[in-house]
Nucleic acid binder design. Sequence first.
DNA 1: CGCCCTCTTGAATTAAGTCAAATAATGTGG
DNA 2: CCACATTATTTGACTTAATTCAAGAGGGCG
Lengths: 241, 241
Amino acid sequence: MDNTVIDLASVRSICQQCGINKLCMPMGLERNDLDQLDRIIKRRRPIAKGEHLYRGGEAFTAIYALRSGSVKSYLTHESGMEHVICFKLPGDLLGLSGINGSHYTNSAVALETSSVCDIPFNQLEHLCQEIPGLQHHILEMMSKEIQEEHEKIAVCSKLPAEARLASVLLTLSGRFHQRGYSATEFNLSMSRSDIANMLGLAVETISRLFTHFQDEGLIEADRKHIKLIDVARLTALVKLA
Amino acid sequence: MDNTVIDLASVRSICQQCGINKLCMPMGLERNDLDQLDRIIKRRRPIAKGEHLYRGGEAFTAIYALRSGSVKSYLTHESGMEHVICFKLPGDLLGLSGINGSHYTNSAVALETSSVCDIPFNQLEHLCQEIPGLQHHILEMMSKEIQEEHEKIAVCSKLPAEARLASVLLTLSGRFHQRGYSATEFNLSMSRSDIANMLGLAVETISRLFTHFQDEGLIEADRKHIKLIDVARLTALVKLA
DNA sequence: CGCCCTCTTGAATTAAGTCAAATAATGTGG
DNA sequence: CCACATTATTTGACTTAATTCAAGAGGGCG
């Protein structure tokens, strides 16, 4: 497995240097495979807050791995109404739902300055033919997305407002933790209204809940900055209801 | 493309005979490929109403293609509460969310006598390595499932009860139509309470809506038998709101 | 500095839930 | 095949969680 001699400034692929690679792509890939993958990936210069990565309806050409920052993906109803689907963090993949139908079915917009890797999909597919581990990884990532959506539907359609917000906070906490950041203290890059939208609630409700959580000593919230104080009680909120 | 001579009772693979194959698996596969796929698929004897195809937590070994009947998939909350995720019809695939984590994350139970094909997943994965079209098809099916979940979240978290039920009826209508059945007249294999559960509503609400839709001349409902009368107005219900 | 947009807070409204009960199916054992 | 038990569906009355409307308070940016 570990056939690496310490060859410092060698031709290490960018993927290998990238701290998030365990999340987004490679996993147990051999060095050679990683290099191949690396070769098809295009890096972009940073994307500014508010810039779109892609929009619903555009031709599907690539999936994206978020390297830094955060991105919101959303559907646009024909009435023009937006529905926020999820918030992506570094290591997450974007655009997978575009595979079927060869057009993106949702839009992705940066919530802050972010950077992404473009992974041209047809090339990725070819590579999957040669690298079984890569194919498996893609399947796993898609499977995980399906799992997450199932979970999200359960939360949004079964739990009261309080539990939904608690769930979002805890989920974010867990995801930050996975990425090596604090699980109890973080900054929200999304607005209250994005959160409300995703949870199918009114902004006012979210705002009230934030103050309520704070009054109850569950969290400390200063604008975007959130500190989880009583994780146990937050967790209980989600379970109960 | 069409290199078939009329060789009646030949060695045609079961997949080729199966009327639903355009939905579940093959698509543009060559005859040879189809045969290979066919070889790994196991057919089961029919599954009785109420029998489980798999349960959440069990080791993930196979995905399933529904051949006839209908199946409900649901999550079980730790409190024991069930959350219905979706209803599967012939041609649909089940179990895809189990790929990640190698355990089924939801349960699938037959709503009526049904038959399925078991597709051992590791064999399928191997086959995907050899048949690019098959790999692509699996990716498409998973992508579609993600799309559908996105859509479902939008419906359940944004639309009022009336529109949610209209959406379910229309979606089912479309799916029956795709499968060659009437788009305007069909039998629901699921209970009112399954529908309510999936939509995040109370059974009573669903019941009231059925009678309401009937009073409004939108549908005719006799127990499980549903007849869509005014599709245009139903559609408008979903859009508006 | 001031405008704009996000967020917060309060009061009134309402959609949907809960509780309770009747009715209609479905199934079971004798 | 019938009587009974059980479950699914419907309907009504009341309650409530969350929305909507209205308005004020902050913050951030040009």
